[in-house]
């Protein structure tokens, strides 16, 4: 469904996205994981036609992002990182304008469906400026789903939201998969990538450093981690292949230890030597 070939973006001397190539299959939920400034949003902006690549290219459903822009616009929807709803308009007006821009037929019914999906139908006539951050994010998702896109891009969909609202957002994203839609998510929340994505691409300093399913990436570095604080107050981590090895390491350690399963952040630390947040 999506294929990136040596996609590159530079701003002057700054390399924002460096020769990134990967593909995303139809119906897949794909995550781009990395710290702030890794190039996730720039990659999404190029795929969603807000930014033009300085090298390489990409296709979505066989349409080139340079030459078939209108065809791509008909196939995708975007939930941007920053709220770009019209704050002075109502929820219904926002969706109606969006539906008209995308020539959506049977708009009234579809708007109701989308607003009900995100539990905002009762607030359809309220202006956006009266909405909480979580409600605005839900409405952004409803707006994106209105066009019934083949590919849904979500750029940091739960950034800045409290854990309860974040889980509500995840539930909505899971529902969007039901009709075989391809979903691309950027996030720097480890648990978000693990909870939602079939495969994850890890970006660091503009380059793609790993790509696989979360479980494969974790087993690549080891299943368990033994952690303890040493005499200098420094956190020491031992990555272990399996539970037995972890227990063996723990037994040989004098300090109080924690044994836990590895997560994608451990993968990131192992690959780059840096933490995600």
């Amino acid at each position: 469904m999506i294929a990136l070939t040596h996609l590159t973006k530079t701003y002057g001397q700054v390399m924002a996205v460096n020769d990134v190539s990967f593909s995303v299959g139809k119906g897949e939920v794909f995550g781009l994981l990395g710290p702030n400034g890794a190039g996730k949003t720039t990659t999404i902006k190029m795929l969603t036609l807000l930014s033009r690549p300085t090298g390489g290219g990409a296709t979505i459903d066989g349409c080139d992002i340079e030459t078939r822009r209108k065809d791509i616009k008909k196939r995708i929807s975007v939930v941007p990182q920053e709220n770009n709803l019209d704050r002075e308009l109502t929820a219904y007006e926002n969706l109606m304008i969006y539906g008209m821009l995308h020539s959506i037929s049977d708009r009234v019914r579809k708007i109701q469906q989308c607003l009900e999906l995100v539990a905002l139908w009762d607030r359809r006539d309220s202006v956006i400026s009266s909405f909480s951050g979580g409600m605005q994010r839900r409405l952004l998702i409803a707006r994106a789903l209105l066009t019934e896109p083949l590919v849904l891009f979500l750029d940091e969909p739960s950034i800045g939201l409290d854990p309860l609202i974040r889980r509500q957002i995840w539930d909505i994203i899971r529902k969007t998969r039901i009709d075989g839609r391809t979903v691309v998510i950027t996030t720097h929340y480890i648990e978000e990538a693990e909870a939602l994505c079939d495969r994850v691409g890890i970006l660091a300093k503009g380059s793609l450093i790993a790509i696989d399913s979360p479980s494969n990436l974790k087993s690549m570095v080891g299943e368990f981690i033994v952690e303890f604080i040493n005499g200098d107050g420094k956190l020491i981590q031992h990555i272990c292949r399996d539970r037995e090895e972890a227990h063996a390491v723990a037994k040989g350690t004098e300090q109080a230890v924690t044994i836990r399963k590895t997560n994608l952040e451990d993968v990131f630390v192992k690959l780059t030597g840096e933490r995600i947040e």
Binding site: T48, L49, L50, K73, K74, I76, Y98, L101
Partner: peptide, 8 residues
Amino acid sequence: QVLVQSPI
């Protein structure tokens, strides 16, 4: 950006 990303 919403306008630019729409197919008009």
